[in-house]
Design a protein around this nucleic acid. Structure first.
Length: 269
DNA sequence: ATGCTAACCTGCGCGC
DNA sequence: TGCGCGCAGGTTAGCA
């Protein structure tokens, strides 16, 4: 689930149900996720959620005295339910709201995190993050300059969160296909023109995924709303060994930087 | 500095 | 039907 579009969709979907709500109680069913849950979280009762925002794949939940910093990891999700909804496996955190609903965090693999940062202080995990991919500062020349001399392959390069945030394995795979660039190219040998195509492709893939996510996740109340996503639109991710939808060549797959990678050896150079 | 590896967890689908 | 294996959308820590 959680690359940037999923976090963005989660934030937009939650917003009308949680912003302005008082947290009447907090239930932590375990002390840690990937990291220990910040101690400030357990004393949030009585505080009002003033707003939500997103930075990279982090969802920030703002209160008057600071912000909860959520990360969904590989398998996390946040949903709003009627307060009496029975628990499922891996429901680790509840924020009970004054609306008599509950914001519930579920995460089977527990790679997610729930941290805290005081007002006007950037959490250490958020310091040093690269630009937002949908912001004007993310350009082909930015990537081109940053990558000079780098021998790492372009795919893992683009997945480094200090290069650009929010681009995970699915969307980088799709974007490189759209841009016609092989994921195995050394980052330092990709041309400026190619980086301009890559930036356009990343922005296009992320924007359309956000649009689709927005429709499939618009109802955060019902328990079965999280379906569909972008899966119908995937051109190459998960299709290794199958024919390229553009030219018919068999799609290649390999592990690059520990992550499954798929590309068309004919369309991507 | 750069780049690579292991590690954190559970669930699922596959082949036998 | 059951079991072992490999794999999964992320990120950090640690080592060469």
């Amino acid at each position: 689930m959680p690359e940037l579009p999923e976090v963005e969709t989660t934030m937009r979907g939650l917003s009308p149900h949680v912003v302005g709500q008082e947290v009447t109680s907090v239930v932590l069913r375990r002390p840690d996720l990937r990291f220990p849950i910040a101690p400030e979280i357990s004393s949030l009762s009585g505080s009002v959620i003033r707003g939500l925002s997103r930075r990279a794949k982090y969802l920030l939940m703002h209160f008057d005295h600071g912000s909860a910093v959520w990360h969904l990891g590989m398998s996390g999700s946040m949903r709003v339910f009627p307060v009496s909804t029975p628990l499922r496996a891996h429901d680790h955190v509840d924020f009970v709201l004054s609306s008599d609903r509950v914001l519930r965090f579920n995460d089977p693999r527990r790679f997610g995190s729930l941290l805290w940062t005081p007002p006007d202080v950037e959490h250490p995990l958020l310091a040093g993050l690269g630009p937002e991919p949908l912001s004007p500062s993310f350009t082909g020349s930015y990537l081109w300059k940053l990558s000079r001399g780098r021998r790492v392959r372009v795919k893992p390069f683009l997945m480094q969160q200090d290069v650009v945030v929010g681009v995970g394995n699915i969307y980088v795979t799709e974007a490189l296909f759209l841009a016609g660039i092989s994921p195995r190219r050394a980052a330092g040998f990709v041309s400026l023109a190619a980086y301009e195509r890559i930036v356009a492709a990343i922005q296009s893939v992320l924007s359309s995924a956000i649009e689709v996510g927005g429709t499939s996740l618009k109802d955060f109340i019902t328990p079965d709303g999280a379906r569909g996503y972008f899966t119908q639109s995937l051109q190459v991710y998960g299709r290794g060994g199958e024919p390229c939808l553009r030219c018919g060549t068999t799609l290649r797959s390999a592990v690059l930087g520990q992550r499954a990678s798929v590309w068309c050896p004919s369309c991507q150079k």
